[in-house]
Design a protein around this nucleic acid. Sequence first.
DNA 1: GTGGTGTAG
DNA 2: GGTTCTACACCAC
Length: 691
Amino acid sequence: MSVGCCLTMEQHERGPDAAGQRSGLREEDDEREWCCTADDRKTSLLALAVASSELTAVHQKHLVVTCNYEARRYGVNKMMSVSVAKERCPDVILICGEDLTPYREASYQITELLEEFSPLVERLGFDENFVDITELVEKRLQRIGSGVVPADLFVSGHVYGNQALNPADGKHVRLALGSKIGDEMRGAIYERIGLTSSAGIASNKLQAKLVSGTFKPNRQTTLLPESVLDCMGNLMHLKQIPGIGPKTVRRLEFHGVHTIHALQTFPLDLLEKELGVCAAQRIHKLSFGEDDYPVTPRGPPQSLSNEDSFRKCSSLVEIRTKLEELLISLLIRLQKDGRVPRTIRLTIRRSSATNQWFNRESRQCPVPNQLMPKLNTGTCELVPPLVDILIKLLQKMVDTRYLFFVSLLNVCFSNLMQPALPSPLKGSIGFYLTQKSPGKLDTSPKVKVKRQLLEQWRESDDLGDATSPLKKKSNFLESASEDSSDSAQVFSNTDLPPGIDLNVFRELPANIQMEIISDASRSPDQQKYHSPQKQSIEKTPRKGSFSFRSLTEDQRKLLVPPDPESNLSNPSAVHCIAPDFHSRTSAGPGNHLEARTVPGPSPACEVLQPAKTEAPTDQSSPPFPNNVDAKVFSQLPAELQKELLGEWKQQRTMSKADVTKRDSKVKPSAGPRHCQKTPKSNSILKYFSKR
DNA sequence: GTGGTGTAG
DNA sequence: GGTTCTACACCAC
């Protein structure tokens, strides 16, 4: 029999000495009464940012995604628009919850802590973890002696349905021991990270998850086998079963299945016809509380993505700006992760007159070989070529010669591979040896990672292709070893930075050893081999710190080449101000957005815009360009119409200057795309009628 | 490998 | 199909 534990983070109670500072959250949040209920879903970690003593809400874009009880007393609620929240509660403090960096990092700390108990930890979102504690339980059972049940055997926390424990039942004994372990885990999370949590202890993942929320906050519940059917029967909705989402619910309800009981008794063959054999059998079993899916540690994420949504984005200039921002924070994460992506994907969502929202659509392509080695080095020079690739992917989905509206952009790096060589640009090999969350190499014990790295080093040294990245590594070693040829020192543990295994260290090439040692002598804030906690907690900048807007001026200079010449020669390096967008996304005090410095020519000359084909800028002319059909325009949502009018008006005032600039600075041969003729009048109809 | 769908928090 | 920002599994091709 297996024993599983599902832990859900929920609360942040201690002062800045605990998780406040360590997870990079607001230091002033020193009193916390915040707690989340079982139905809070993803917001519990976001809630960490909420100062409970004040009226506080977390928002993403124009929506309040969560708020504290103080704010709720004034009528603020989740999923309420920010404007309504402000109306009801003018003093509410709004915290932007769009940058998930602090939550992601806190989340990985928790997972790592749980891995100290058992290697079988499966993350579910940012705030839930499944832990398979079967082995731990068995060990404890052996310790107390088989068949001998201690008289003081009891269940830590609650028992579902108040069912009495039967000490003669082996399953009961194991679950009781499991409850003790669950208690210890929650204690450790509280002691070391400062978060309270709820837990469910049961015989499988489904059951553990379902009971974990029975008593909240800061409580745990154990489900004994005899209560499983009760537990399932008490679920009010099909959607409460993890694995049954809204689509499946609708399909089930279409066939008259509205309750758990109805699902249990629904003929399996009909279910298989409707959902397919696999899915049908799975959810049928789930309805009885049966779940044979094992706890599966996922290791590091399989992809890294970043997205932003907006009401509309209709020009390549805006798209480029957005893509740059998304890419920059992604590249920083990629650098921390240490792996190299082989695939890049762009996902968009577009809006139109007829359908407010399209489903997402995406296109992906391999990352060009020449870019790959640099991708995790944090260098800014990759932004322009990557943006170019993304624009090409966009143009596979959208004909950008015509008017288009995109309301979401998502950039995703996937197919993440360990680099063939630790990048010298990274500055520290120790980084590879010790780096863990959130960009960790692996969640397995450090030694294993080190061995893998050493194997990689050995393997790569055996290869002789002069053009391969591996050979480049070798070249790097050769050049480096010239400097360190006399460094055949004998090192002891005291020479090494914390966390580096001496035996592993000794197997590294001499020059790499020197690099690690020289890293150790740097000032602490320069070092990259903090202990995992230090690295992920103390070094974590405050919320929003990884977005371009919040970078320091120096950082921006690093990321945005200041040379106007380079911008001229490479249009994709042009950076623009998008005041309209920025003002919409600005997030209140402490998170305001700044206009970006704009080297290079005006971005307006870069991309075809509807305004460029407008009628002469006569005040008496229609307010929109003459290639836009008035009828079609009138079908657009009022909001869009308003924004377009404003935009076109602005462009009209700018167009003269732009044309002059373009004529004087840009040669006709600069790029066919930029010189394409605008679509014929009314061609916008094509766009709208198609969809 | 690609692209879409569904699910999850 | 309520948002947002992820992440993964699965399937068809």
